[in-house]
Structure formats: structure tokens, C-alpha cells
Design a binder for these strands. Structure first.
Lengths: 227, 227
DNA sequence: GGCGCGCGATGCGCATTCTGATCGTCGAAG
DNA sequence: CTTCGACGATCAGAATGCGCATCGCGCGCC
């Protein structure tokens, strides 16, 4: 299992390389976009981890070049929190997943493993679903009962979090730190409002309701079973 | 479940140690970075709680050293509010979560439990049971005899504590500090009231009664079998 | 430069929790 | 066996604080 990391920031790059090596992968590290592209085209990698901000050639330019060469290489994007636009671009270009910096290493590892699984079984669609609700990470599209739903960036991000951890009650502090980059100032209710808007789009026109409020605790997304 | 706390400030350290011990964990406390590192590498811990500001060796240096030794140890960072930079560094180094000081103890406890669930993948169970009573931590749901019971936040928290320490007689002072964030003012009877409400939901409609009062001592939850 | 849409802040209603008073019960001692 | 003291149980009203709907600003797009 060979992984190529393209990351210019030395500290992060070394850290990633070390961690993934310890996890049992063979890892190469390129420090800029041109090196990265060269390695990606010549080396025989099973996965590329790609920083968006790179000197020389940025992440999605690199990805574009790789795709033009007809490579099916799975790509995992790393983006800073304020580069959502880039992230979207990357996904449209055929990145298979992305991770917002800063991230927990365990999270990265999990994504990497998922990508490998996918790679072997042929390309599975990168979608998250619950009941008749479906979220397509690549196309950034949401449907429910086959009806297309348009979401804003925040709404999408929130729904994505809820879907990734479906069945779990997510405390507001967690949501705040994941979807916004704030350390929960309790004197704001942005979260409630965001949930309200999300519900208006994905729950109000449909049955059953998937987003449940757990008073004093947070929110869960789940298919309400009997009992 | 063994936890290592590395914290130089005596007050905070003692407070954490006491609280986590009462919650049922085995806790060691190191007062500086070098001690902490030594313990982290030699002791067999399931989680490290790490202050960023430490004499000798700071939090992320310690973390880096641990990672270099190939340890998969889950790490929870404690950072002051104005040390967001440090926090980011910590996360890049593979911290699994962070908490901004000052924090509510309940918040810490919740994070610790989440880390156990995720890190060890089920070492810490996601559901607690006694007799036909079942409590699902992730979904925050309670059932008895397969009948769904809706609990409020406080009720849930209280029942969770009783279940985690089932068979033990829990003094009121302990309950007060774990479920409420207070140091027992004896001139209130909130606990009795809360126990009453909880009993009304989980014991009154069922047999056998699981919550028992031990006069002069506190409360126990247990299945009243022979003995 | 105007317009529209997405975002975050303010004020209300209600579930939940606490307060305080009273009643019940357990245990010990006369 | 009876009585008394103390601790715990219970109840109803009060207060807290949470979650929701509405409102106005501001950014981005045309």
C-alpha cells in the first residue's frame, strides 16, 4: 500500500509521513506541487494525500493534471478551514474525500482506510445516507425522496456532520467547533438557527422527521424506529 | 480504564484527579512534563489528559515524544483560551480532542468518554444495563422491558452515574459533584427530588425496584437478587 | 450600485428543574 | 412496646434557562 503525500509545510508533512509509516503504509513525501505531480505520474501509488495550498502548482491544478493523464488515483484533500471554495473545486475535479485542517490523526487514518476499501471494490459513490435522505460529497448534492435539495455551505457542513455521526447525540459544543471554528460562546444561538434552516429544507416537507432535538444535550440525526 | 493527567497547577490537577476517580477511573497525576513523559511511556494508560503549559517539557513536546515511540495513546489537550495556536499544533500532532480552560467538569467527562468509545473501539461500552433496564449512551435512550422511556438531561445523567457504579452506594456528595457541578450545600434537597422523578419513570411502573435508598449513606442501583 | 440570499442577533413560550413546606418512615432508647 | 428524633419522600408552585420563530444586516452576485 503506497501513499504519496504532497505537503509543503515541513512539520505537517513529516508528521503525516511518520504516522502513516507507523500505521504500516509505504509513504513518500513531496514538498511542492511540481515534485508531487512528477511522483504521482511516475510512482505507482495507491493513494495521494494532497494539500491545497502548495508553492508552484496548487492542489487542484495538480489533481487536474493527474486526471488529464487518465489516472484513476484516489485523492484525499487537505484544506484549511477557510478554503471551502477550494475544497469544492477539488471535489468537483474528482477528489475522493477531503479533510479540514486541523484534524485528528485518527480521523485521517479512518478516511485513508475507507479510500483503500473503496479502491479495491471499484469506486463506490461517496455518499452518506439515512432513510430516504442522501448526501453526495463529490457533487455536493443532497436529495430526499429523490427530490433535489439545495443547501448552503454551512447547512451542508452541518448535515454532513450529523450524517457522519448519525445515531449519536452531538453536543452543541462539538457542533460549534466542527462546523464553525468557534469555542462555543454560549451567548449565541447560531446553532439553533442553523438547525432550523436545515430542518426547513430537509425535514419540514417530509416524513418522517430525521433531526431530533435532545433537550439540554444536542441534536441527533437518525431514522426513528418503532418502540 | 487508566487515565494519566499531566498538569502542573496543583489545584486543577487535584480537582481533575478527584473528579475522574469518583467517576470510576484509575487516575495517575504527573506534575511536570518529564514525569509525565516517563509515566506515559512506562505505565499502561488508556488516555492522557495533557496541559499545554508545563514546566520542563511542554504539552506538545511531550505528545511528540510519545508519538515517536509509536504509542497510539488517545490524547486530550487542555489549553487556555488565548492559546488557539497551541491547540492547532496539538491537533496536527495527533491530539484527539481539546478543551478550552476553564471548562465544566461534565464537559470533560463527556469528552473522555467519547475518546474511550472511539479510540478503543468499544472497550468502553456504549450501553449500560442492569436487569431489564438498558441505557444507550450514544442515542441517549433508555428502555426497560423493551419499553422506551424518555428522560430529561438531569435524569439521564443521574441514571448514568448510578448504572456506571451499580452495586455501589453513592453518597449524596458524590452525586452532587458529578451530576450537578456543585459542592453539596446540605440545605437543599435537589437530589431527593431528582431521585424521585427518576424513580417515577424507571421504577414505579415496573418490578423489581432497582433504585434503593440506604439511609444515612446514599443511593444504590442494583438488581435485588438473592444474597 | 442594487438586489437577493444567507447569516447571526433579539425576544417569547414552555419544558425542566429547583424551592420550601409537609408528611411518612425508620431506628433507637426509655 | 411506645415514643421521639431525624432523615428521606413527596408535592405544588416558582424560576430558570433552553429552544424556536422572527427580524434586520451584510456579503456576494449580477
Amino acid at each position: 500500500m503506497r501513499i504519496l503525500i504532497v505537503e509543503d509545510e515541513a512539520k505537517t508533512g513529516d508528521y503525516l509521513k511518520q504516522g502513516l509509516t507507523e500505521a504500516g503504509y509505504v509513504v513518500d513525501l513531496a514538498r511542492d506541487g511540481m515534485d508531487g505531480l512528477h511522483l504521482a505520474l511516475t510512482g505507482d501509488y495507491d493513494l495521494v494525500i494532497l494539500d491545497v495550498m502548495l508553492p508552484g502548482l496548487n492542489g487542484w491544478q495538480l489533481l487536474e493534471a493527474v486526471r488529464r493523464n487518465g489516472r484513476e488515483l484516489p485523492v484525499l484533500f487537505l484544506t484549511a478551514r477557510d478554503q471551502v471554495e477550494d475544497r469544492v473545486k477539488g471535489l468537483e475535479l474528482g477528489a475522493d474525500d477531503y479533510l479540514v485542517k486541523p484534524f485528528a490523526f485518527a480521523e485521517l487514518l479512518a478516511r485513508v482506510r475507507t479510500l483503500f476499501r473503496r479502491g479495491r471494490n471499484g469506486t463506490e459513490p461517496t455518499t452518506l445516507t439515512v432513510a430516504d435522505l442522501e448526501l453526495d460529497l463529490l457533487r455536493r448534492r443532497v436529495t430526499r425522496s429523490s427530490r433535489r435539495i439545495d443547501l448552503t455551505a454551512k447547512e451542508f457542513s452541518l448535515l454532513e456532520l450529523l450524517l457522519r455521526r448519525q445515531g449519536e447525540v452531538l453536543p452543541r459544543s462539538l457542533i460549534a467547533s466542527q462546523v464553525w471554528d468557534m469555542n462555543f460562546d454560549s451567548d449565541t444561538n447560531v446553532i439553533e438557527v442553523a438547525v432550523r434552516r436545515l430542518r426547513a429544507k430537509v425535514d419540514d416537507p417530509f416524513e418522517p422527521k430525521l433531526i431530533r432535538t435532545v433537550r439540554g444535550m444536542g441534536y441527533v440525526l437518525e431514522a426513528p424506529d418503532a418502540a
